[in-house]
């Protein structure tokens, strides 16, 4: 009869309430990483987080002393300002609303959210991951960049180039 190896590869450690149960074959993103690529969170990551915190908090304090948050007259339902503007991040949509309320206010925002959710299910090929602007991803990146650029331009128009009655104005005049 063949002798079965009874010696465990990873002997039980009585100090632990858990143990190694089995080894499985499989792959996950860390499989490609060499141990040399890994460093301890303490201190390498934590010190970076701390530095970022100090920088962000410092910049905010400086900004808070230099620039006051806007505060206008008390709200008056009888005196609408002209134009009444939404917060800056919605001014792109408000600009679109000025062409078509339904398209700018409902259709396009809905499409944007649906498209964002679908992105990772449409573009699944795992190439060009982990680097900025990978050549293999030029098309996808170009598309997304165009989208961001269009939103930015619309926001700039809505913020600076729209005056009373949402007419076109030039900010430096």
């Amino acid at each position: 009869m063949r002798e079965v190896n009874t010696k465990e590869v990873f002997p039980k450690n009585s100090n632990k309430t858990y143990g190694l149960m089995e080894l499985v074959k499989g792959t996950k993103p860390t499989v490609g990483l060499q141990p040399d690529d890994m460093v301890f969170t303490w201190p390498h990551l934590l010190i970076r987080e701390l530095v970022l915190f100090v920088v962000v908090a410092g910049l905010l304090l400086v900004a808070a002393f230099l620039f006051d948050a806007p505060l206008e007259e008390v709200a008056n339902p009888n005196h609408p300002p002209n134009p009444a503007k939404a917060p800056w991040y919605f001014l792109g949509l408000q600009e679109l609303v000025s062409y078509s309320a339904f398209a700018g206010g409902v259709l396009i925002p809905t499409l944007i959210v649906v498209a964002l959710i679908l992105i990772p299910f449409i573009d699944r090929k795992r190439i060009g991951v982990g680097v900025w602007f990978a050549k293999q991803r030029a098309f996808a990146n170009g598309l997304f960049f165009t989208f961001l650029l269009v939103m930015l331009v619309l926001i700039i128009i809505g913020t600076f180039f729209r005056g009373p009655n949402w007419d076109f104005v030039v900010p430096w005049e």
Binding site: I119, P120, D123, V129, G130, V131, F133, A134, A140, F144
Partner: peptide
């Protein structure tokens, strides 16, 4: 997006 980090 630009680093392709949303892929599986």
């Amino acid at each position: 997006f630009f680093t392709g980090a949303y892929k599986p």
